[in-house]
């Protein structure tokens, strides 16, 4: 009998703590499969952030360092400068990367650090209980925008993939979603391209994953999945915004 599906070697054989319908598991799998396909895991140092993503080391069988909230790109900069022969990636949520860590992501990208940043955008602060994030959509109700996000008071969702593509230091910037088999396959391709940039020493690479947070959105798994395709993909356009080496 032919085996058609198995756990990537980069992932540990553990039960997930993520909520039902959460996309972190799918994104973890894409990252792990890509690490396996490039045979990178054993020379990788992962950089975890604050939020649901902190448990990186519980799922990935990799060396991992934690970062203070928002600082993962600065920590990854230090790791990569000290060990340029290692594969270094950060894994960050939207509160971490696009709010408290705005300075660090912009400047690591602008320096063109040879690292890969994996950005999980679920339009909310997940672990702390569904507060408004910089990526929260206009009108979206959260625990700190109970009347819906009002752009005149709370501004607009930040489109990070597009923002970073404007910086000369960025080699690759893309946005993907994992709400459908087709999008998952595209997301995997984007992940592979981003990793190739670092493997080939071609500079800073970034992939934003749109992700569902059913618990904090107050939705079931299927409904949340549909919201990603319907509302999020409309505001946060999927695609490649920068691909300097045409990989």
């Amino acid at each position: 009998m032919q085996q058609v599906f198995r756990r990537p070697e980069s992932l540990k054989d553990v039960q997930t703590h993520f909520c039902p319908g959460c996309h972190h598991g799918t994104i973890h799998r894409i990252v792990a499969e890509t690490l396996d396909e490039f045979d990178l895991a054993r020379k990788t140092i992962g950089v975890a952030s604050i939020g649901c993503s902190v448990f990186l080391y519980s799922y990935f069988d990799l060396d991992v360092v934690e970062s203070p909230h928002g600082r993962a790109p600065a920590v990854a900069t230090g790791v990569k400068r000290a060990r340029p022969d290692r594969f270094v990636f950060t894994y960050q949520g939207d509160g971490d990367l696009a709010a408290i860590g705005t300075a660090e992501i912009i400047h690591a990208a602008n320096r063109g650090e040879d690292i890969t940043v994996i950005f999980v955008n679920n339009t909310t602060y997940g672990m702390t209980g569904g507060q408004m994030a910089p990526t929260t959509l206009p009108g979206q109700r959260t625990s700190t925008s109970p009347y819906g996000r009002r752009s005149e008071k709370e501004g607009f969702p930040v489109r990070v993939a597009e923002l970073l593509s404007g910086l000369d230091g960025v080699a690759f910037s893309a946005r993907a979603a994992v709400n459908s088999p087709r999008n998952i396959m595209d997301a995997k391709k984007q992940m592979k391209k981003a990793f190739r940039y670092q493997i080939e020493g071609k500079g800073f690479s970034f992939v934003e994953f749109l992700s569902a947070c059913p618990t904090n959105w107050g939705m079931g798994a299927i409904e949340a999945n549909e919201r990603v395709g319907r509302e999020m993909c409309e505001y946060f356009r999927l695609g490649t915004f920068k691909n300097t080496a045409n990989l």
Binding site: V65, S67, R71, A74, V79, A82, H107
Partner: peptide, 12 residues
């Protein structure tokens, strides 16, 4: 950022 770069480099 600078102290966090120290953290990263020193962690290796």
């Amino acid at each position: 950022a600078s102290i966090n770069m120290v953290l990263g480099a020193a962690a290796t």
